[in-house]
Design a protein around this nucleic acid. Sequence first.
DNA 1: TTGAATTTTCAATAATTTCTGAAAGTTTAG
DNA 2: CTAAACTTTCAGAAATTATTGAAAATTCAA
Lengths: 175, 175
Amino acid sequence: MKISPSTQSFVLHFGEMGSRWGFNRTVGQIYALIVMNEAPLNADDLADGLSISRGNVSMGIKELLSWRLIKRQHVPGDRKEYFTADGSIWDMGKKVLEERRKRELDPTLSLLRDLLMREADNENEAYALQQMQEIHDLLEMISQWTEELQRMKPESLRTLMKLGSGVGKVLNVIK
Amino acid sequence: MKISPSTQSFVLHFGEMGSRWGFNRTVGQIYALIVMNEAPLNADDLADGLSISRGNVSMGIKELLSWRLIKRQHVPGDRKEYFTADGSIWDMGKKVLEERRKRELDPTLSLLRDLLMREADNENEAYALQQMQEIHDLLEMISQWTEELQRMKPESLRTLMKLGSGVGKVLNVIK
DNA sequence: TTGAATTTTCAATAATTTCTGAAAGTTTAG
DNA sequence: CTAAACTTTCAGAAATTATTGAAAATTCAA
């Protein structure tokens, strides 16, 4: 397992960022290393490459499998388990969004809907409920957009990417 | 500072979620409490209401001011400093997105651009660079959409919200 | 000015999260 | 079957992050 300097930099950086996307530094690094390698990697490659314990790798792999970001891959003639990225970069984006929707957005929406069933019995509470309603509507919209992205084909994505700063035009079409 | 049960539930939940949005539990709770109250609150209200120390409130306020999510408000006849939410719920969403873009997306894009300047001197590295390019393009697109949302007027937002599940139609217009 | 009211800072401590590595569990070649 | 190869688990240790509260700094009324 030799790691090129640029992969090294990327892996380290991705680890730091990972914590913002719902998994910890090590999990982020493991994923980055797998994504940067076309060839499947095994747990020892990962432990060596990242200088972390074998047990830590096992936990990380479990987590990444639960996000469906990596998949097991059998390498003929080797008894070890190997792993590769599950899907394209675009798939990665979709899965992270989807998973976060399930873990964060849905529970919050569910709580808000509960709270919004209640009647306000004073002015302060009325204000609070009104604010909750606005938050609910905003999150609901984000949730719907997220769902929509899931259904989007990679071709549409490519068109969307090429739009570049023309992205604004699309939103203007709406009104 | 009496807190209604529904506000209480919301504040606690928002605190937990807050950690996903770039600030910690306490900061999330402070913000939620301020948002739920039309009347400005002072540091003691917050410390009491959330059962946290005065020092912790001070740190939290500093953080929220740096995100421009709350603003100081002078209450005539009182020497204490008071705080209210800075902007609408929609503004809150925009600010959080914008701040995260600056803190997370921009540094990552900058690193990727650096790394992508290099020449691959073997097949593995070529593959890694290709993956980095795709990640770059995806993040660049997200960054542009985020920027676009900043410029969007609240009226367009309202239209967008009303679209509901019709959101998909809009994306189809693109291709 | 002065000093009481208020806010901020920050070292010490507490709470939480992550990581290790040995032991237990599982799989498979022979 | 057996045992070596490999993986997973998990209790304790280490590292990180959050919180307190007393002291220092600031603000402002008198």
